[in-house]
Each structure stands twice: as C-alpha cells, then as structure tokens.
Nucleic acid binder design. Structure first.
Lengths: 224, 224
DNA sequence: TGTACATCAGTGAACGCGCGTTCACTGATGTAC
DNA sequence: TGTACATCAGTGAACGCGCGTTCACTGATGTAC
C-alpha cells in the first residue's frame, strides 16, 4: 500500500520502535506486576495497530501482557477506557511530534505550514490504528475531556501558525478558516493513504510536493 | 453533530427515504420469500447505518428481514459478501447522484467542480455508515473488482471534469493531480463532519462556501 | 386439466468460539509498633 | 530487628451472550408429460 505515498523528506520517520517493541509474554518474577497499567496500554496499542480499533479485545490484550483477563479491571473501568487511554497517548505523541518538527523551521515560514502537514500524515501512516482511534467516531471519546482538550490544543497550534505566517500573533477568523482547510486536506490524504485508495486508484503521490502545493494554495494567497 | 455543517444549497437532500424505510418484520404469505436477496441487502444497509460497518451482524440482519439465520447463505458466500453488496450499491448510488448533479450546470463551469464536492460530502452526511463501508479499509474490498471499477470510474469523471474546466477533453497529469487534491479535501471534510470533529472543535462550516473556496484554490489557478 | 417430479429457497437446531465482566479468593508488599 | 496486620494488585473459574456457519430437512413452485 505504502509504495504509493512517497515519503522523501529530510526527517526520516523515527517510529520504528513502534512496531518492533514486542511485549514478552511476561515471565514474571512476582505475584504482583509493578507496571501493569502501562503494559496493558502498550498491549492495547499494539493490538489496535494489528487488528484495528474495532477488533481489539480485552482478552487478547491480557494474553499479550501475560495476565488474567480480570486484571485490567483493577486499572480501567472497562474496555472503552483502555482504548481511550491509548487514544490519549496518541494525541500527546502527535503533539510532541508536531512541536519537535516545527522547531526545525523559522517562525512564520511556509516550511512550518508544510511541516505540520507532514507530521499529520506521517503519524497516520506510522500508526494507522491509533490514528483511526484518535479521529474516528468512537463512543465516549467526546466525553473524555482530556482527549478533546489535547486535540483542541493541537489544532490551536495550527491556527496559531497560520496567523504567524500572515505576520500576526492573533488568530483571525480567516486564519481559523485556512487552518481548517489545511486540516481537511491532510485528514483526507491520510485516510486515502491508509485505506489503500491511492493504491487502488494507482495514484503516485509525493508527500512533500503535495504538502508544499496545498500549503501554497491555502495559505499562500489572500482570501475572503 | 450536523448543526456544524451548514448545508444551504439549491438542491435539498432527497435522501429522506434512506432512513424512513423500515423493514417490516415480515409477515410472509408463503414459505418462500420472493426477494430475499435484496431485502437482506437493505436490512444490511440499514444496520450498517445504525451500528457502523464493524458492528453489523448477520443474525441481526436476518431478524430484521424476518428470516432464519441460515437463509443468507443461499444468496451470499459469507458476511463479507453481504457488506460488499451494500458497498457496491452505495458506489452506484453515489455515481448516479454525481451525474444527476452535474447535469444541472453548464459543461466546463466552476459550478460543476463545486457540485462534485457537494455530492461527495452530502453522501457522507446522508449515509455515513455506507460511506465508511465504501471508503474505509475493509477486508476483501480491494479484491472485489466491481467495487474497485465503479470507484475508479467515478474518480475518472472527476478528472474529466477538471480537464474540461481547463477547456480540454483529455486528462493531463496536472488535471489528475488537481482531481486528487479535490478528492483529498472533500474526503477529509466528510470524515471530519461525520466523526463529529467539527462539533468538537466548534467549527461552523458553510458547505457551499467552503466548496466554492476550495474549488477556486485548486482549480482556479494554474500550477506546476 | 391433472399428476409426477426436480429444484432449490428457507428452516431450525446445533456447533464451537471468544467475548466482556463479576466474584470470592490469594498472596506479595509496606507500614506500625 | 521482628512481628502483626492492612492493603490491594492479580487470580482463575464462572456467567451469559451473541456471533458466523453447517447441516439434514421441508415444502412451495414450476415444468414435463
């Protein structure tokens, strides 16, 4: 699938750890675990990648973490809460990626607009399962305020950057509008990529070129 | 959710039938059914809307169609084939919508570009379940050639229209590129809408305005 | 028009399965004295 | 330092459930004569 999205970029993806990290079936030394909560989150994350958010099962996560199927309920209310924990971690990771990538370019530059798109699509490609979990329609997500706030916070950064590109620190309505256009675009591109539609339509897409193109079209010209 | 996407448009959505159509639990007159295949597809479609493609169950569809849970296997190989039948119907319906909407505007006009986006987003909003089924990653979809061909066919129309806007009948690489940009954009907008992200981010979007804006940005200026 | 027969759509019971969650429990750990 | 005890993370067995699919069957229908 991925051959259809060319990821030529200065920044190579540093997310190899994501998949190579395996949870060893837990030759545990003691009755107690020590760090089960985070091990369960990690097992859940891996499963979400392997099977997708809708085919994740608590039982399988327990098997992976080497723990009885009742154990998670000492740390999570229910299945949904495990998934939300993974989604939240994802949002934070995405946020960190974003800030780290932005730092590389001068404030107010078009490169920074492009960088934001790169981070978004990269995240989707590197962690499609978690990406779906973060942005798909999942019950209870909207009520998990930490999740919503982290997301809003990240989007605020995008708006901020658009304003800055215009030379302002304050976000005007037109900046918000353009930020939204950018979001829609990279969101669509991300899903088309991870759902294999680029491959299906035999579309060869050079990510950097497309991001630069769209950035110019959205933010490069004055509008409304 | 939908309050955040304003659908002001000449064309009111004509899809009310979609949800009001209920399958009566089948007071059947005879042992045989007559039209079970299409009734099952319809039951499947409704369930896909109600619960999402990943929470559809054969058993429930049978209950809705008033038929034993073994009955579908006289018409479909398995569960996946039922879903693919619904997806295919969806693709055809979308195709019909598209052609019908295009007819309303003069050949080569910007209105036609906007119309295509309108049809796409409208479809997603009217039938989010089927939309997800059509464009999400579902096992076996890529191997169902009728499905892929119908999709490719529809995308070819978009490319054609972009070329025509430029005044050509032949699709140049730049037309294909622009068609892809348009697709990414409306695809992202569709998902952001049906996944409730516009609501979450308190973004009020006027569909017609946004479509016109993006059409201009993508197709209104010469590029590469 | 009437009868024999082939067809095959739909039945209903059964299968094995893995799931999410509960429960009373156990045993390792840390703390108070 | 040593002992008693509270805490609570993890156990393992059990629960009821709905699922997808199979199977030998049944009975309505259409056709050939």
């Amino acid at each position: 699938m991925l051959e259809y999205l060319t990821l030529t970029s200065v920044t190579c993806s540093e997310k190899d750890w994501i998949m190579e990290k395996t949870i060893t079936p837990e030759k545990r030394d003691s009755y107690h675990h020590g760090d089960l909560r985070s091990q369960l989150i990690e097992a859940t994350r891996i499963l979400v990648e392997e099977k997708g958010p809708d085919h994740f099962s608590v039982s399988e996560a327990c098997r992976r973490a080497g723990v009885s199927s009742a154990a998670p309920y000492k740390h999570f209310k229910d299945k949904g809460e495990m998934l939300r924990a993974v989604a939240l971690e994802g949002m934070k990771r995405q946020r960190v990626d974003l800030v780290r990538e932005l730092e590389k370019y001068p404030a107010g530059s078009l490169d920074r607009i492009v960088a934001m798109g790169r981070v978004y699509v990269r995240f989707a490609v590197d962690e499609p399962g978690v990406f779906r979990l973060m942005f798909g329609l999942s019950e209870g997500h909207a009520e998990h305020s930490a999740l919503v706030e982290t997301g809003n916070n990240t989007f605020a950064v995008v708006q901020q950057e658009v304003a800055r590109y215009r030379g302002s620190e304050a976000v005007a309505p037109e900046d918000a509008h353009k930020a939204f256009l950018l979001w829609s675009f990279v969101h669509g591109l991300s899903f088309l990529t991870i759902d294999g539609k680029l491959a299906e339509k035999k579309l060869d897409v050079d990510l950097e070129a497309v991001l630069a193109d769209i950035a110019l079209r959205v933010v490069g010209h004055p509008t409304d």
